[in-house]
């Protein structure tokens, strides 16, 4: 499924606008997301980051164009978008707490399973599930209910679920928020491992995490794209400093 695109996967967003009764939460955004890089999406609260992802995953309707593999995402429904190979996480971890880690992953792996086969009980662990367990480091906890996992482990399980559902484009909404320093590092390394043949978009507030792991940064402000580029480019941008790093800039100039 991935091989046919040979690293050419990209999502092209043109003039995307989300209009909530006259309030434009996202206003004419152009972004191109390329495979193989960790693309960070940052901006102050209310900049429209999550709304942008909501529009791209069918949660809210938007106008404009968002083309992925010749499909216009804006005209598709959520589960169809997922079947196209696009997955997302939410700000609050939303694993199925009463199911085991393994069952969580197995359900994520099941979208291409036929109805008849799903009437049978699971006897063996599917290959992708076993791999994902290994990648996210939760093999030893496979049979434990997901509800007992630590916060960071739940977020990794979410990433694992995206892996087994074969998401080529992942939107991670504030995944490292609330994680300890070690968990952040492990998450960053995990993302670096899996990004090679995928496109990963990370919505994040943590500047330290951004500096260490971002390959490309898009800064949003009041629903528009303010600046784009490498971490260094964005940090040097005057406007970004004004709207987003305002206090930090002041501190820098005073100090």
């Amino acid at each position: 499924m991935t091989a046919s695109f040979l690293g050419q996967d990209y999502l092209e967003i043109r003039n995307l606008t989300v209009d909530f009764d006259g309030f434009k939460a996202v206003d004419g955004v152009d972004i191109t997301l390329h495979q193989g890089r960790l693309h960070f999406l940052i901006g102050p609260n209310g900049a429209g980051k999550t709304t942008l992802v909501d529009a791209l995953t069918g949660l809210v309707s938007g106008t404009g164009e968002a083309t992925f593999r010749h499909h216009d995402l804006l005209s598709m429904r959520s589960h169809e978008i997922v079947r196209l190979g696009i997955g997302r996480t939410f700000q609050t971890a939303s694993v199925f707490e009463q199911l085991s880690v393994l069952e969580n992953l197995d359900i994520a792996a099941g979208l291409h399973r036929s109805a008849l086969r799903s009437l049978r009980a699971r006897r063996t662990v599917p290959e992708p599930v076993e791999q994902a367990l290994d990648t996210i480091g939760l093999t030893a906890l496979a049979h434990r209910p997901a509800g007992i996992l630590a916060h960071g482990q739940k977020q990794w399980l979410e990433i694992g679920m995206l892996l087994v559902q074969d998401a080529q484009l992942m939107f991670l909404d504030e995944t490292v928020a609330g994680m300890s320093g070690d968990e952040r590092d492990e998450t960053g390394e995990l993302l670096k491992r899996i990004v090679a043949d995928r496109t990963i978009v990370v919505i994040e507030h943590d500047m330290e995490f951004l500096r260490r792991y971002a390959d490309f940064v898009t800064v949003m402000h009041t629903g528009t794209v303010l600046a784009e580029g490498s971490v260094a480019d964005v940090q040097a941008d005057q406007r970004v400093q004004e709207v987003y790093l305002g206090t930090a800039t002041e501190a820098a100039t005073h100090g």
């Binding site: 995953t57 429904r77 959520s78 589960h79 997922v82 079947r83 997955g87 997302r88 939410f90 939303s94 694993v95 199925f96 707490e97 009463q98 199911l99 069952e103 969580n104 197995d106 359900i107 994520a108 099941g110 979208l111 399973r113 109805a115 086969r117 799903s118 009437l119 049978r120 009980a121 699971r122 679920m161 559902q165």
Partner: peptide, 28 residues
Amino acid sequence: WQLYRSRYGELLLATRDGEERIRFLGYD
């Protein structure tokens, strides 16, 4: 009994507990 222990049974439980989440796993 068979339905509850099948993958469909697990999926139904998951739908009960997190309908929106199921949508983003590609199921309707």
